[in-house]
Nucleic acid binder design. Structure first.
Lengths: 246, 246
DNA sequence: GAAGTTGTTTACTCATACAAATAAGCTAGA
DNA sequence: TCTAGCTTATTTGTATGAGTAAACAACTTC
C-alpha cells in the first residue's frame, strides 16, 4: 500500500508486498500487540471465534499465529489458549517486528534505545570495515554517497541511498551476525529519518559527516572510522531529540 | 485414509518434552538449511509431495514453512514454489536459528564472528550496566556468581548460572533491543562453552574474571566494567580457539 | 515484433472432521 | 478434611479434500 511497486524487485520485497491473508493478519495482530492493544499475558479469543471475527478461515488465522509465535510475540498451548508473551521474549530486532513497531508511533524510549544500540554497533563496525573493505565495498559506498548527495534525505531515493551506505559499511565488516543486525538497524535508521523530517523540515546537511566517514574507510584508518561514525550517530541522535521535543 | 504414525518416529527424547509436529518439521528443515543440506536458491519439493514424504499433513507442513519464512530462511510464492532465501536474509540472531545452527557443528568462522559481536556488545553493555544497575540487578548477579562458583562450568546448573549472570548484566543496561540480543548471545555463549568442554577438559578457572567484572559493576565504574568484560570475552575466545585447533 | 491472451502449475484459502493435550472439576479413599 | 487419581470439557493441533488466486510460459493477435 505504502510501497510504490515500481522498484519492487530491486530492494525490499518486504512483508508489505505480501498480500497473502495470513501475512496481513499477522501484520495486523503484530501491530496491535506492539502498539499495546494487547498486553503481555493477555489471552486472545479462541481460534474459531477470532478467525470468524476477522472474517478469515481458521487455517489462515493459525498460520498468522505461527508467524507471530516464531517471532516470540505469542505462545499457544491447548486448553490454555494463545497468549501474548512477556516483552523479554519478543524478538525486537526482527525486521518485521521493527517495521510493525514503527506502524504505530513508537515510544521515545524505544527510539533512544535504538540509537544507543547504533552508538555501540556502528562505530565498531565502521572500524572493522576500514580494515577489511574491498574495492567493491568502496565502490558501493561511493555510489550510495553520490546518490544521497543528489537526492537529499527528504526523498525516498535519498533515504534508500543513505540506507545503502550504512548497509555497505556493515557488510564490509565481514561478519554474518553483524550483517543480520544491519538490515534491522539500517531500516530503523530510515524510519527515524522519516520521523525527523515529518516533525521538522531539513535539519542539517548530513553530507559532511558521511563524507568524512567515507574518507576514513577509504584510507583504511580504523580509529578515524570509529571516531567519525560516532560523531555521525551523535549528530543524528541530536537531530532526532530536537524533533522529539520541539 | 488414516495416517498411522507409529510410536517410533524419532523425536529427540531430551528435555524438550512434547513438541508439536509443525515445530518438529520446522526444526528439522531449519537444521537442514543451516547445515547446508539445502542451499540458498534451492527450490523445495511441492507442498503435497514434500508433506507426504515427511509423513505429515499439508496443514502441519505449511505451518512449519510459515515459521521458517518468518525467520527469513525461505520464501514461497505461487507457481515458483518455496525456495531457500539468500543468507543475507537469514535472521541469524533469532534464538531458534542460533540453536539450529549449533545442532550441526557450526563453522569456525561463525563462532569467531559471534565472539567478535560479543566483543562489541558486551563491554558496552557492561559499562551501561555499571551506571544503571539497581540493587535487584546486583543481587541477581551475585546469586548467579555464587551458583557458578559452586557448580563449575562442566555442569548444566553451572552453565545456567553463567548464562544468568550475563543476562542479568545485559538487563541492567536497561535497553530493550539490547536485551533482545541478550537471549541470543547468552545462549550462544552457553553453546560455545559446551563446545569447549567437549573438546578439552576444564581449561581455566573462569571465576576471577567474573568476580572482577562483578566488583566493577558493584562499584558503579563504567570504564572498569568495560575493561574487565573485554578481558573476560578475550579469555573466553582464547579458550575456544584452543579447543577449535587442538 | 510488441502487446495482449490463454493455459498450466503452484501455493493459498476455505471448510469440516477428528485427535491430542491439559486445566479444572469430581470422586474415592485415607 | 484432605489428597491422589480419574473424568470431563475446552482448546489447540492434525488431517483431508475441494476450490481459488497468482505467477510464469507459451501462444496468439494486432
Amino acid at each position: 500500500m505504502r510501497q510504490d511497486r515500481g522498484h519492487e524487485d530491486i530492494r525490499l520485497p518486504l512483508a508489505s508486498g505480501s498480500r497473502r491473508i495470513h501475512g496481513s493478519v499477522a501484520r495486523d495482530l503484530g501491530v496491535a500487540i506492539l502498539g499495546g492493544r494487547y498486553m503481555p499475558g493477555d489471552v486472545l479469543p479462541g481460534e474459531i471465534e477470532f478467525s470468524e471475527q476477522l472474517k478469515v478461515s481458521r487455517t489462515a488465522y493459525r498460520e498468522a499465529i505461527r508467524i507471530l509465535s516464531a517471532k516470540g510475540l505469542v505462545e499457544s498451548r491447548p486448553r490454555t489458549g494463545t497468549r501474548v508473551s512477556q516483552r523479554s521474549r519478543w524478538n525486537l530486532l526482527d525486521p518485521d517486528i521493527l517495521a510493525w513497531t514503527f506502524e504505530s508511533e513508537p515510544s521515545e524510549t524505544f527510539i533512544r534505545d535504538l540509537f544507543e544500540l547504533r552508538m555501540i554497533v556502528e562505530p565498531a563496525a565502521a572500524a572493522l570495515a576500514a580494515e577489511r573493505r574491498s574495492g567493491l565495498d568502496l565502490a558501493r559506498m561511493g555510489h550510495a554517497l553520490e546518490e544521497m548527495g543528489r537526492h537529499g534525505l527528504s526523498t525516498d531515493d535519498g533515504r534508500a541511498a543513505d540506507q545503502a551506505f550504512h548497509t555497505a559499511i556493515l557488510e564490509a565488516a565481514r561478519n554474518g551476525p553483524l550483517i543480520a543486525l544491519s538490515s534491522s538497524i539500517a531500516a530503523a535508521v530510515t524510519w527515524t529519518t522519516i520521523f525527523k523530517h515529518r516533525r521538522q523540515g531539513m535539519p542539517r546537511d548530513p553530507m559532511p559527516d558521511h563524507r568524512a566517514l567515507y574518507e576514513a574507510i577509504v584510507a583504511g584508518d580504523p580509529e578515524a572510522a570509529r571516531r567519525t561514525m560516532t560523531e555521525l550517530v551523535r549528530l543524528a541522535l541530536a537531530d532526532t531529540e530536537l524533533a522529539l521535543r520541539p
